[in-house]
Amino acid sequence: MPHKAFAWFILPSALAMLLFIALPLVSIVIQSLYVEHPQVLEQVESCSPFGGCTMETRVDAQATAALREAEPLGRFNGLGTYLNRSHLATGEIAEILRSSDGFADSLRQIYQLPFYRALLFTLCYTFLVTPLGMLMGFWIALAVNRIPAMLKGPVIFVSLLPMIITPLIGSLVIYWMVNSRGILGSLLQWVTQDPTLSIAASGPLTWAMLFLYGIWIAAPFSFVVFYAGLQTVPQDTLESAMIDGANRWERVRFVIIPHLVPLATFVSLVQLMDNFRVLEPIIGFNAQARATSLSFSIYNDLQAENGQLFASAAATSLLTILFVIVLLFPVLIRTWRDFSRKGAH
């Protein structure tokens, strides 16, 4: 296709992405370098009939509003926001490393810093839920492949539900069940014979619940893709493996799994991207006291009741995007190699 025709066809789509994805990135970079104006303070002398006069410091609301109106970005702060306590916390970490006794202790102290707390949960969620969800999906696909054909349609229908459902709705539905007054929560109390047991009150249980929820919504996608892959497994390879004496497990290990590997790469890429942005479950499960993610920190900064923290949100956003790029890097390199090889001949 000639360059000119290509340009006209791609123009609307490229314009949309440029204006609403690329430009906001620039806006994030700029915002992260500024910080909100502090409140304008004024000294007022207040006198009471018997107490005499004292100097008081008050917030000059009018002047503050005027200043914020005039310079909505705030004042220039350089990399200050990145290095402060709510983000990379370089000063705090240097202090922790200097004064702590032992490695475990310094790790525990670093975990108290909000950015590292969010980062740790996000990474744990991404790298636990992605493989476990795929494994679960693979098992379901193997099992569904064996059941009578007439059951397959309804089974696929029900299996799609957790994936298709709005994440916030899915997490609320589960949250109401595992709530200490809900059916699963009560069941858990009955099983452990501990009437005070509450998932929300325990850090490890909250994490486990969020991971299980993640697997619940992630498994169907892997299931559908792997199930479709199973339909195209070459039958003659399977048969020759049988003739050569491969047992059932060996056939799965040496014929089926290698056949599914390209699909698994695709699924893991999509799931890594989706799991890394985990936000809605934390809101749905009301879990922010026990677990926060990078996305949730940004959401929280933008929600802040008394003034949205744009600089803080922008700094976290930029750090998050850097992590996303690191995460994607192996894929990008591989795609690039494939493409160069294709271009070569």
Binding site: M17, F20, I21, L23, P24, L25, V26, S27, I28, Q31, P72, L73, M273, F276, R277, L279, L294, S295, I298, Y299, D301, L302, Q308, F310, A313, A314, T316, S317, L318, T320, I321, V324, I325, L327, L328, V331, L332, T335
Partner: peptide, 19 residues
């Protein structure tokens, strides 16, 4: 486009609000 697809939506939202 793939890199854009991978970016969490909330990071973009933080860029929209001020403009």
């Amino acid at each position: 486009a793939l890199v854009f697809r991978a970016m969490p939506h909330i990071t973009l939202v933080s860029g929209y609000l001020v403009p």
